[in-house]
Design a protein around this nucleic acid. Structure first.
Lengths: 227, 227
DNA sequence: TTTATATTCAATAATTACATTGAATGTACG
DNA sequence: CGTACATTCAATGTAATTATTGAATATAAA
């Protein structure tokens, strides 16, 4: 606690931030918070973790300045402190992707070969959407879809893919997206759709990046979402 | 070690990278490696740490893909794996700066008031250099200066500031820079220079950022550096 | 006021990170 | 070959991180 030289004090601060990012569960929490503010309870059930555990992780992140929280009735809603947190997350992902054979292996091994998974860029998708050439599906759970999604996207959670698949036109290209560039849902969706003969691709990243790029987002006002 | 679901495997990889960044000594090592490749021994003496300690930190960073190394005779030179590492470091600094009252406090409390320290941007400095309006001093140690510095900069290590000060024109603005935006040397230099009546400012960041921005860098070919 | 619900706190145990020491390896050089 | 030097390895103790459990707070609703 005693103050040493200023150089060390600075590195300590920087290290504190990196340390707060250095845990898989906390990174997953950040990915969820990037969709929008969430209560401790909501996050805990999304990640299937004990509430106390999630609470402690959130507090650790708050101490490091990654998230902030406000009380709303008996809930406490956490949110990302600012966009610099997402930038940092993206930078760390970039390092991991560049280095790690492991990341490649996971993506390639679990789903398909990489070249089959060539993602669609934001710009490309936007222009094909305008020309009405693609069906865009949002494979996140209904509650996340409700809080904001790409204009014209259809919510098609992975859990209900069987129920909705017959309604999709099989001759039209499908682009799937979810929470972020490495959210597995869209990988799984594309794999599943291709297995059933659809022409499907992934958006290169997800909802938070789309929003951060200043592109329009559609909301659901009332409830009426088929969960 | 057993492979769980792909989602967790990815977050684990990302967390590994962040964890490798989550230590003040390792961050300092990165800042030094950003100046250029270094041997374990050189780094250890720069940081005044035991060699075995530095060696282990470097190995930890190598495992996470932050650095790489090549053997050169009986030395092993470590270097940053690629530019994405510096980007990640910068992103983490940005989070810390935005959040942390602590960072502000350190910088303000230790040196001067913040507004006195208004940094010069790269672009501004480049244009004033071209117009020959400023004296640029590089306050890093001589060996780092030798391996690359801003064109026309004078090497004026902190340890020798007394010896060289009389040679500086006191009516000309001085811009000091060092290893990076939070390298304390340039803060100290500016404080010292002002105390002695010079008009001094800091470059907003340091050597690696200048180089990364594609601006010209000058080298010293033979030895002949006044250490 | 009581009850239910959301969150935090406190205490514990298991694991991992870190610094330190001295020995081991690998390379250069006489 | 043997010595010097740079680096790594292995072993140790200490500290920090993490998950888990159950108790404690705080708010809302009955």
């Amino acid at each position: 606690m005693s103050i040493r030289n200023p150089k060390q004090a600075l590195y300590d601060q920087f290290a504190t931030v990196a340390k707060a990012l250095g845990n898989p569960q906390r990174l997953e929490l950040i990915e969820h918070l990037a969709q929008g503010p969430r209560s401790v309870d909501a996050l805990a059930s999304k990640l299937s973790l004990p509430i106390a555990n999630v609470s402690q992780h959130l507090q650790a992140m708050r101490r490091a300045g990654l998230v902030a929280s406000e009380r709303d009735g008996k809930f406490i809603n956490y949110r990302l402190a600012d966009d610099s947190v997402l930038t940092a997350f993206a930078a760390i992902r970039a390092v991991a992707v560049r280095h790690s054979a492991e990341v490649e292996r996971v993506v390639n091994g679990w789903f398909n070969r990489k070249d089959d998974m060539e993602p669609v860029s934001r710009e490309e998708l936007a222009s094909r959407m305008k020309a009405d050439l693609v069906t865009v599906i949002d494979v996140r759970p209904g509650d996340e879809f409700a809080l904001g999604h790409l204009p014209g996207a259809i919510n098609l959670p992975m859990s209900e893919i069987d129920r909705w698949l017959p309604e999709l036109q099989s001759d039209r290209e499908i682009v799937a997206y979810c929470r972020g560039p490495w959210c597995v849902l869209s990988f799984e969706a594309v794999a599943e759709l291709r297995k059933r003969g659809f022409k499907a691709r992934r958006l290169e990243d997800g909802m938070p990046e789309w929003k951060a790029a200043g592109m329009t987002v559609e909301h659901v006002q009332a409830g009426r979402i088929d969960t």
